[in-house]
Simulated scan of single mutants.
Amino acid sequence: MTTRSRDHRISTPFGTIAAREFPGEGDPFVFLHGFPDDSAIYDRLIPELGNRHVVTFDFAGYGKSERTNGAGLEEGQRVRETAAVVDHLGLDRVVIVGHDAGGPVAVEYSLAHPENVSRLVLLNCYFGDSPTLRFPEMIRLLGDPNLVPLADALIHDGEKRKWLLEHTARQFGYEPTDEIREVAIIPQYFGSTEQPNALQAIRAWTGRLFKDVALQNEAIASGSLSKLSFPVDIIFGANDPYLNSGVAEHLASLFPNSRRESIEARHWVQWDDPKSVADALMRER
C-alpha cells in the first residue's frame, strides 16, 4: 500500500478535525480511536492493509485536531464528528472500525447511519455493561462524577499524571518505555512539539463515561442492535485484563451476524500485532 496520504481539515460544530485519507480500493476502512490516544494508534496497521482505501482522524480536541474551549462533550458528539468526516470525504459505504472508547462510537454511528455501513469492526472495546467488563482504575477515577476535584487535582499535576499513566500501562501489560506510549498516548497527556496536550478533551470524554454506558444499556434493551443485518467482526487481543474475552463474547451476543476472532495481543491489538488484525480485516464476508 502506498504510504502517501491526503490530509484533510474538516470543519464541524465542535472544531476543525484533522483526517488522513489513504486512497485505495474497496469500501474504505474508517478507524476510530479511544480515550487515551489518537489516530496514530493505527500507524502500524495501515501499511498491512495492501491497496485498501483507509481513513483515520483525530476526534475534536485530540491529536492534530483543533483544541476548543468548550465546557464538555455533547451527547452524540463523537457520532456527529464521524458523520462529518464520512460526509466531507463523500464516502458512500464504509467499514467502520472502533477501538477502546471508539468502539461505542462505531456502534452508535452504525445505528444512526446503517445505510452507510457495510461492516462494523470492534477492537478491544465495550458497549454497555457486561459481566466481565472492568474499566481501568485511572479511567474509573476520571469518569466518577463524585471524584471530580480529586481527578482534576491529580491530572493537572505533571508528576502525578506521569505516575498514573505508568501505573496504568503496567496494569495493561505495557512498559513506560514502549514506543506506543511515546507515539500515541504521551502527546495527549503532555503535548509535544507538534501539538498541545488534550487534557480538556480527555476530561470531557471520560467525564461522560457512565452516562454513555447507561445510554448504551438502553440501546441494547431496545433491541436495536439485533436489527443490524451487516456483518460485525469482533477482533480482540486476548491478553487485555480489562476489555477482555468475556466482553468480546458479550458483544458477539448483541448482533445477529457477528464473528469473533482472538489474537495473542494486549489492549492495543492493532499496534501489538498489526499483521493478524489486517488479515482479519481483509477476510470479507
Results as ranks from 00 to 15, higher is better:
R80G: 09
A84C: 15
A153E: 15
L154H: 04
L215P: 03
I220H: 06
H88Q: 13
P36N: 09
L225S: 04
T16A: 13
E182D: 14
L73C: 05
E194F: 13
G173W: 01
W205H: 11
D279L: 13
V213H: 03
G70V: 05
V247H: 00
K275S: 15
P241T: 01
G98W: 10
R4I: 10
H167F: 14
T12S: 15
A153T: 15
E182S: 12
G26V: 06
L123V: 02
Q188K: 06
R283A: 11
S39K: 05
I180R: 01
L209A: 11
E75D: 12
D233F: 02
L243H: 05
T206P: 03
S65W: 06
P104G: 13
A184G: 05
V183Y: 07
R260N: 07
I234G: 04
A252Q: 08
P256G: 13
Q77A: 10
L147G: 05
V79K: 00
F190N: 03
G90R: 11
F210Y: 12
E194L: 14
E137C: 11
P145C: 14
M138N: 03
P114D: 02
P36H: 07
F59Q: 04
F22K: 00
R80E: 12
R161S: 10
M282C: 14
D272Y: 01
L165M: 13
E81G: 08
T12H: 11
A151V: 03
E81R: 09
D273P: 09
P256F: 13
T206E: 08
D87W: 05
Q77G: 03
F31R: 02
G158M: 11
G223T: 08
L150Y: 14
A265W: 01
D58L: 06
L225Q: 06
V277R: 05
D92M: 04
A219W: 09
A280Q: 07
R140P: 00
Q216E: 14
D7L: 12
Y242V: 12
P149R: 11
R9T: 09
